[in-house]
Amino acid sequence: MANPPPSSSSFPHSTHSSHSTNGIDKSRAPVVAVPLLQPRVAVALGVPKRWHHTLSACRLLSIAPPICWGLRFALRFLVADLLRLSTQGRHGRDISPYTLRLTETGLAIIWCCASAYLAFFFTDCLMSRWLINYTPQATVVRLFTISCAFAYLTSWTVYLTAGSQDPGLLLPAWIGIATILTTCYHFTQRKIKIRKETFASVSVFSIASFLSMVALLLHSHSTRVGYQNIPLVAVVKWACKVAGHIVVRILGVTMDLDGL
């Protein structure tokens, strides 16, 4: 008598493997729609909604130091130098020292924004790890603590480098801060393969470095004799002059330079 054909229950491993290879398990995974300001990991882990806003607020605290000790000083230097540059240009005086200050101030703004981006990514990755291993209460305490530590160290770095007094000193201060943030991020995440965040942190640092190199090269060539004869330079100077007048009008800054 012939044996009956084996049933599907006799080969549970082959059945599951065929499903996994066909991608059925992946298709059954629920797609979580998360608003931009809510932490995605908290939603995926089922953290109660009452903690979402608190976690988001503590995560956003990481960008406060670049705004308070970076962008605030840089914008003040930028407006002051634009006014000085406009006044010196109308009187026919040498404006080369102010163009260098404008270049340094613009690069300082770029590195402050890069530092804010890196700090947010670093804090977001730490929050993801802490939510997996700790309760939401403990995660909030850790996020608030690391944001306070970052603010304290940032304020002392800018103070010790005298970055609040000169844009030429503010730029290296924020380059150093961005370098430290990138190093700390890769050091803490070296055991976890998060390609997206790692690629983003490297891209931000690389883009800021490239823009700094291009800006310094442009300034170096602009000080040479004969660059005024290049049509592109004339167009860029005209565009910068128009942009400067627009910025001054939007900010409502007067031309009184006595307090600068």
Results as ranks from 00 to 15, higher is better:
58 C>D: 02
146 I>D: 09
132 I>V: 10
111 W>D: 10
46 G>D: 00
104 E>V: 00
149 A>P: 11
70 G>I: 02
107 L>C: 02
76 R>M: 08
65 P>I: 06
65 P>G: 07
151 A>L: 15
130 W>M: 10
44 A>N: 10
152 Y>E: 12
39 P>N: 07
157 T>A: 11
78 L>A: 07
74 A>T: 01
143 L>M: 04
89 G>K: 13
36 L>P: 00
145 T>V: 05
146 I>F: 08
147 S>C: 15
54 T>M: 12
37 L>Q: 08
83 L>G: 01
82 L>T: 02
100 L>A: 08
34 V>M: 05
158 V>R: 14
83 L>R: 13
66 P>M: 06
114 A>R: 02
116 A>D: 01
29 A>H: 13
65 P>M: 14
121 F>K: 14
33 A>S: 07
89 G>D: 09
92 G>Q: 08
56 S>T: 04
124 D>N: 04
87 T>E: 15
52 H>I: 05
95 I>V: 15
136 P>W: 04
97 P>Y: 06
82 L>A: 01
114 A>L: 03
35 P>A: 07
137 Q>G: 10
106 G>C: 08
36 L>I: 10
114 A>H: 01
133 N>G: 00
56 S>R: 03
37 L>A: 12
62 S>K: 13
145 T>F: 09
90 R>E: 14
55 L>Q: 05
72 R>I: 03
101 R>W: 04
37 L>F: 12
69 W>A: 12
120 F>N: 08
144 F>V: 02
27 S>Q: 14
87 T>W: 15
62 S>E: 11
140 V>P: 00
51 W>C: 03
129 R>K: 12
162 A>R: 15
139 T>N: 07
58 C>F: 02
61 L>G: 09
79 V>M: 10
55 L>K: 07
110 I>G: 04
29 A>F: 13
140 V>S: 12
55 L>T: 02
45 L>F: 01
152 Y>F: 15
33 A>E: 09
109 I>L: 13
